[in-house]
Amino acid sequence: MTKQPDLRPERPFFSSGPTAKPPGWSPDKLDFKSLGRSHRSKYAKGRLKYAIDLTRELLGVPDDYLVGIMPGSDTGALECAMWTMLGARPATIAAWESFGNVWIQDAVKQLKLKDLQVLDADYGEIPDLSAIPQENDVVFTWNGTTSGARIADTDWLAPDREGITINDATSAVFAMEMDWPKLDVTTYSWQKVLGGEAQHGMMILSPKAVERINSYDPEWPLPKLFRIKKKGAIDTAIFEGATINTPSMLATEDYIAALEWVKSIGGRQAMFDRADANAKIVKDWIEATPWLRNMVPNPAQQTNTGVCMVFQGDWIDSLTDEERSAVPGKIARKLEELDVGYDFNGYRDAPPGLRIWCGGSVEPEDIERLLPWIEWAYEELKAGNL
């Protein structure tokens, strides 16, 4: 029997969404003055606008782009973009993991786009993005939350391309720099890299995206939550804090607290650096551990947020498929029982493996303390003790 490690993570939160709260987070630090108020009141609307302005500042969003708060998390924001903008010209949906495949299903089964190119790839891989015509609208996921595969660059997007680009950046923004001049729609949720609360998303629009909304009316009906036009043009009030439906002001205050924490540590570059350092700890450990491999074989495409790994080696190969698929869950459940690490099992639709969130709200010391426990649990499982 191997010896249990001595040290446990101080904060055993390794979920890929909702992710760990920023270090030092406490509900006592939130501004509660907007609670119990109408979201249309001057104070509450001012807080919503402050969240928008702080987002713009910290992400370096260009001045002529619109930033708005949307219902339904990243899903609501992304689907609003698809429902309101696609269908005007040929489109490409590029996917390499679970959530990208949802956008494919939206395009094929719900919107039933007539001129559609689908590019997909297995978990850990990315399709040939150079095959996307520049005249096509394109929907893609910057960073695969469930596979750990991210785009290496935006060279495949021409600066003067005719189509619009819709970028699902929910597990990338605040961990990777966005190439704003090449992005027309960028969406994300508060609950990913910032460790905020769920149910609210952000939608960032370029002037080109605004022009598309103003000039195009899709043939399908739009639910109220997707209606961002008023009197034939985009409703700019939405991007000034007048949300489409009632937001949670408590979640808004939590988002603001996360943004202010990012500002206090040095802005988005500090978040990039923290994620890179955390991911390096995990990637170096995977490289040094013979019974693991990164799910993404190409280092240039390996994420610095939800690092995904799968098991390999003689012992794993000796198991049945059912036994093999149960290994990650048994390790994750045991360490959760011991309050060592929460929610780091791989995504349910992904190949069986582990996924450790390395975004900037996670402390490196906690990751360093988690890894020996995974080794211990693996050896215990091999010995028949789990």
Results as ranks from 00 to 15, higher is better:
Glu211Gln: 13
Gly313Asp: 07
Gly360Lys: 03
Val173Glu: 03
Asn298Trp: 00
Val193Tyr: 00
Leu129Pro: 00
Arg348Lys: 14
Tyr188Pro: 00
Leu113Thr: 06
Thr141Phe: 03
Ala172Ser: 15
Leu7Arg: 12
Ser34His: 08
Arg40Ile: 09
Val327Lys: 01
Asp137Tyr: 01
Asp343Ser: 14
Gly195Arg: 02
Lys182Leu: 10
Arg227Pro: 00
Leu292Pro: 01
Tyr65Leu: 05
Asp314Met: 03
Val296Gly: 02
Ser189Arg: 02
Val102Cys: 04
Asn304Arg: 13
Trp376Arg: 02
Lys382Met: 13
Thr84Ser: 14
Gly360Glu: 07
Gln199Lys: 15
Gly163Tyr: 02
Asp184Pro: 02
Val173Asn: 05
Cys80Ile: 08
Tyr65Pro: 03
Arg333Asn: 14
Glu260Pro: 00
Asn278His: 08
Ser16Ala: 14
Asp179Met: 02
Met295Arg: 10
Met249Ser: 03
Val108Phe: 00
Ala377Leu: 04
Gly359Thr: 11
Lys330Pro: 00
Thr243Ile: 10
Phe311His: 03
Leu335Ile: 07
Asp63Gly: 12
Ile151Gln: 00
Gln302Leu: 08
Pro364Thr: 13
Val173Asp: 04
Glu368Gln: 15
Asn143Ala: 10
Thr320Trp: 05
Glu10Tyr: 07
Gly60Cys: 07
Leu58His: 08
Tyr378Arg: 04
Pro352Phe: 13
Pro27Ile: 15
Asp153Ile: 06
Pro328Lys: 10
Met1His: 11
Asp321His: 12
Ile265His: 05
Leu58Val: 04
Pro372Trp: 10
